[in-house]
Every structure is written in structure tokens, then in C-alpha cells.
Amino acid sequence: MKLSTKGRYGITLMIDLGMFFGEGPVSLKSVAERQSLSEHYLEQLIAPLRNAGLVRSIRGAYGGYVLAKAPHEITVGDIIRVLEGPITIVDDPEEELAELWEKVRSSINEVLDGTTLLDLIDKKRFGKDNIMFYI
């Protein structure tokens, strides 16, 4: 499995929105500036995330985007599947290796579904060497 820029930038976008969870809408322009990403590209990513119910848009002069769920309720797997599609390892595995590839796919799903957006936000805020990360 190779994660495209769509998946990587989508996770970055969701982490940024999660950092401001409960504080009101965040503009894509501000995310683009903080993360050094293209605002135009973020606009392309936000639509499928909104359609999947992971983010909500707020209209108006002080509008922007907010997470539709709390960060602990959104997994990395949720984000990746919306932006990248189903997780596959091999398109057409040989019969004798099919079981191996299924185990690999299952392990990847387990990690992605076992990692929440809050886990990534905490790691970004506190860093893995910060004692607060382990409490």
C-alpha cells in the first residue's frame, strides 16, 4: 500500500482542524498557511471529507470548517478510506499467496482503525518524548 499526497495531506488537514476542535470554524486559507499546503488542493480534499460526514462547513464571514465528530471518534482508517478508497495490497493475488496478502491487509486495517485523530493530535501537541503524551 502506498499512500498518495491525497491521503497524507488529508490527514494533515484533519489534524489541523482537530487542533481547533470546539473553538469554531477554521478557514482552509489558515490551514494552508500553517501547513504550507496549497489552498486549492485542500479545497479538493475537503469535499469528500464533508460528504463522508467527517467535517462540516460553516458559512458566513467567520465561516470555515469544523470536525463533524470529536477527534477520538475519527480514525485514520476513516480518513484514508474516504480519500484513497478501500485498502488493498495486491489487485489480483496469486492463489498461493492470497492468505498472506489478506493478513497484511488486515494488519494495516487494524493499525489504521486503531489510531484515532486524537492520537495524532496529541502526538503533534506533546511529542512522543513529552511525559504528557503517556498520561
Rank of each mutant, 00 (worst) to 15 (best):
I15M: 11
A52S: 14
E23D: 14
I46T: 06
P25D: 13
K29P: 01
R50N: 03
P25C: 13
V55E: 04
V31K: 06
P48A: 00
Q44W: 01
D16L: 00
R8N: 12
L28S: 03
L28I: 01
L28T: 02
Q35L: 09
V26M: 11
F20S: 14
E23A: 02
H40Q: 15
R34Q: 11
S36K: 15
R50F: 06
R34W: 03
G24K: 05
L37V: 03
D16K: 12
P48Y: 00
A32H: 00
Y41Q: 04
S38E: 04
S38G: 03
D16A: 15
R8Y: 15
L17Y: 00
L28Q: 02
E33D: 15
G7Y: 05
A47I: 15
E39A: 12
S30A: 12
L42H: 09
E43Q: 15
M14H: 05
M14C: 10
L49S: 08
S38Y: 06
S30N: 09
G53T: 04
A47S: 13
A52P: 14
S36F: 10
I15T: 02
S38Q: 06
G7W: 01
G22P: 06
R8C: 00
Q44I: 08
A47E: 13
D16M: 06
E39W: 06
G24R: 06
L42Q: 03
G10N: 09
V31P: 02
G18K: 07
V55Q: 08
A47P: 07
E43F: 08
E23R: 04
T12I: 12
G53E: 03
Q44C: 10
Q44V: 03
E39T: 04
A32I: 02
G22E: 08
Q35I: 02
L42M: 06
I11N: 05
E39G: 07
Y41D: 09
G22W: 09
M19W: 03
G53S: 04
M14L: 07
I15Y: 03
I15N: 05
G7D: 06
L37M: 15
Y9H: 14
Y41L: 08
I11H: 09
V55G: 07
